[in-house]
Amino acid sequence: MEGFKATLINEIEKLYKKKKVLVAAIISLIFIVLGQLSIIALRNGFGLRGVSSMDFPILVLSVVVNTILPLFTALVTIDSFSGEFSHNTMKIALTRPITRLKFFVSKLTAIMLFVLANLLFVMIFSIIAGFLFNSNSFTLNAIIRILVSYVVTLMPMMVLSLIIVLFTNIIKSSVGVFFISIFIFIIFKALEIIFYRYSGLFFTSMLNWYTLWIMNTIPFFKILRQFILMLSYDILLFTGSYYLFDKKDF
């Protein structure tokens, strides 16, 4: 356990020192500011009501989870695996007294902590932005709904991350993995529209899983079905990715 803890701390420090984390935070802030300015402009210029302070963070999440969050998750995941493969730094890390499984899990855990930190960062600042411009709709119940929406988004992001990890263990080129990941993401988004009746099976549709949690009447069966489906994806992708990772000759 101590070996896993030390490796996890090391992976978190490596992510923290990368410029991608700072860029992700800056772009997230830009999204929040532009979103709030757009709402103010629509409200003042066209007389539209806009959204309340508690609806604004959900609106931000709907945009972020389909744009910059998958993008930076892909970049961080690729850098954590393909980047270290290409720079041969993986060999140095594996010289420590830790199994490959623990090392693999520590990398995934660090990536998920990055995603969670990004989500919480966006949530906090979007709540602040919404509160500053419309404090009348600020309620504890709304805060809980927002918190649940952001936290549950972590699970579908894990599916996306594991898909990218699988590609990193198949393709050596970081650039190749990045473009294939983007291509697959776009293809599945298109398939959602074409085969809309089966869209729930595609991992891209799972990014909107949080919407089920904030309905007036929570559809527990749909939530459970999506959870089981995502868990199945996670198990299959984790097993396949780790198998390829374990077979690599560093």
Rank of each mutant, 00 (worst) to 15 (best):
I128T: 03
G45N: 05
I146D: 08
V60R: 02
I127F: 10
N44P: 01
V51I: 09
G130E: 00
S149K: 06
V60C: 08
R96F: 12
F46W: 02
H87P: 03
I40R: 11
S161I: 11
M112I: 13
V64Y: 14
M155A: 13
I98W: 11
L42Q: 13
L160M: 13
N118C: 14
F81L: 02
L162Y: 05
T73D: 13
I163C: 07
L120A: 12
T153D: 03
S126Y: 06
V65Q: 12
V51M: 10
V151W: 05
R96D: 05
L160C: 11
L113W: 05
F104Y: 02
T99K: 09
D79Q: 13
G50N: 01
L69R: 04
T95C: 05
L166I: 10
V105L: 13
L140C: 10
S82R: 03
T89L: 08
L116E: 01
F103H: 14
P97K: 12
V76P: 03
L42C: 03
I92Q: 14
V122F: 10
R49F: 15
I98H: 04
G45V: 00
S52C: 08
V105H: 04
L120V: 14
A117L: 09
G83Y: 09
N66V: 10
F103T: 10
I111G: 00
A117K: 00
S80C: 09
F104L: 09
L48C: 01
G50P: 04
P70T: 06
T139F: 02
R100M: 04
A93F: 15
A129D: 03
L101W: 11
I144S: 10
L42I: 06
V152W: 01
F85V: 01
F46I: 01
F131L: 13
I68E: 02
I128N: 00
A41L: 02
G130A: 01
I92C: 08
I127G: 04
F46H: 03
A129L: 00
I124M: 14
I92P: 08
L61R: 12
K91G: 07
A117D: 09
V60W: 11
S126M: 04
F103S: 15
M54Y: 14
S62N: 15
L160P: 06
V148C: 07
F138L: 13
L154Y: 01
L113R: 04
S62G: 11
N169F: 12
A74I: 15
V148F: 12
F72I: 02
P57R: 07
S53V: 07
I78G: 11
F104K: 00
T109W: 00
D55P: 09
E84C: 08
A117R: 07
P70V: 02
F104H: 05
N134K: 15
L75S: 06
D79A: 12
L71T: 07
L71W: 04
T95D: 05
V122G: 09
M123F: 05
F121A: 02
R100I: 07
L108Y: 04
V51R: 07
V122E: 12
K102Q: 14
V64Q: 12
L42H: 02
L59V: 09
G83F: 08
F46L: 12
V76E: 08
L42P: 04
N88P: 06
T73H: 06
V105K: 10
M155D: 02
I68T: 14
P156K: 06
I92S: 15
T168F: 01
P97W: 05
V122D: 12
M90Q: 13
F103A: 15
A93T: 14
T109S: 11
L166V: 13
T168K: 01
M158C: 14
